[in-house]
Amino acid sequence: MSNTGTAATASLVDECRGVLFVYSDGSIVRLPKPSFSVPVHDDGSVVWKDVVFDPVHDLSLRLYKPALPVSTKLPIFYYIHGGGFCIGSRTWPNCQNYCFKLASELQAVIISPDYRLAPENRLPAAIEDGYMAVKWLQAQAVANEPDTWLTEVADFGKVFISGDSAGGNIAHNLAVRLKAGSLELAPVRVKGYILLAPFFGGTVRKKSEAEGPREAFLNLELID
């Protein structure tokens, strides 16, 4: 739990999905686990570990790969979690289950990074963190003593970057920044981007925002 003030003496101003609470004195309480209960489906076919990619901001990513030995190098697939830039984590069970499935069915190395969340960290902090997570991969590709857990199986020439919701927005911004061919990441080469229901907001409401039902999971009140 994070607490940037004395929330006990202040009134609740806003909350998000029973995880994030903002109080009138500016304090913020953030619970470490989601409000929903989802079991983790780890059948042993995929192995994983956590790695710090940004020690300055204490940010980690989670690596996944098939447990059985492979005869060829595997493509690398980034999955950036969603959560409206406010909630979510690589450690949440829904994220972990999705990455297990990706690693197993795609036969790929999966990289799932965390990023700094709002309101403690305003944009473009999350986008910069996504960029740093990709630069970490480049550093591994050229390092004299890389993490062999990754480099022995990963094909740095076949990288794909995906994300859902806010993560899709980060993936979009990475595509704009890195441009076609991702030359600045050499020898890492991004082959494509997959945006899963990407979250984009603006000052003018879209029709789907203005007319969306209140009972929807992502209703107008939550988006605002």
Rank of each mutant, 00 (worst) to 15 (best):
residue 218 L to P: 10
residue 181 G to D: 12
residue 84 G to N: 11
residue 176 V to G: 06
residue 136 W to C: 00
residue 141 A to H: 03
residue 132 M to I: 05
residue 133 A to L: 07
residue 155 D to V: 00
residue 41 H to Q: 14
residue 149 W to C: 01
residue 6 T to H: 08
residue 224 D to N: 13
residue 195 L to Y: 01
residue 86 C to E: 14
residue 54 D to N: 11
residue 11 S to Q: 08
residue 126 A to G: 09
residue 160 F to V: 03
residue 54 D to T: 05
residue 103 A to I: 00
residue 181 G to N: 11
residue 158 K to M: 12
residue 122 R to P: 03
residue 157 G to H: 12
residue 19 V to S: 05
residue 32 P to M: 13
residue 85 F to N: 01
residue 107 Q to S: 12
residue 4 T to I: 01
residue 85 F to Q: 01
residue 181 G to C: 07
residue 102 L to F: 06
residue 78 Y to F: 12
residue 70 V to P: 05
residue 180 A to Q: 12
residue 207 K to D: 15
residue 181 G to V: 06
residue 83 G to I: 09
residue 14 D to R: 12
residue 56 V to E: 15
residue 55 P to R: 05
residue 167 G to P: 13
residue 98 Y to C: 07
residue 113 P to M: 02
residue 140 Q to E: 10
residue 120 E to L: 03
residue 35 S to T: 09
residue 19 V to I: 15
residue 221 E to C: 04
residue 82 G to P: 13
residue 185 L to S: 01
residue 174 L to E: 13
residue 223 I to T: 08
residue 197 A to R: 14
residue 21 F to C: 07
residue 165 S to A: 15
residue 16 C to V: 12
residue 157 G to E: 15
residue 126 A to W: 11
residue 45 S to I: 02
residue 41 H to T: 05
residue 216 A to W: 14
residue 124 P to E: 12
residue 188 V to K: 07
residue 79 Y to F: 07
residue 170 I to Q: 00
residue 141 A to Y: 05
residue 188 V to D: 09
residue 11 S to T: 07
residue 144 N to W: 05
residue 218 L to R: 11
residue 128 E to M: 14
residue 64 Y to W: 02
residue 158 K to I: 04
residue 218 L to A: 13
residue 176 V to D: 11
residue 109 V to Y: 10
residue 152 E to C: 03
residue 198 P to Y: 10
residue 24 S to W: 03
residue 108 A to D: 06
residue 31 L to T: 04
residue 37 S to G: 07
residue 103 A to R: 01
residue 46 V to W: 15
residue 91 T to H: 08
residue 49 K to H: 08
residue 43 D to H: 07
residue 123 L to M: 15
residue 10 A to C: 05
residue 182 S to W: 00
residue 86 C to A: 10
residue 134 V to R: 04
residue 188 V to N: 08
residue 22 V to F: 06
residue 180 A to N: 08
residue 140 Q to R: 01
residue 186 A to G: 04
residue 65 K to M: 09
residue 172 H to E: 10
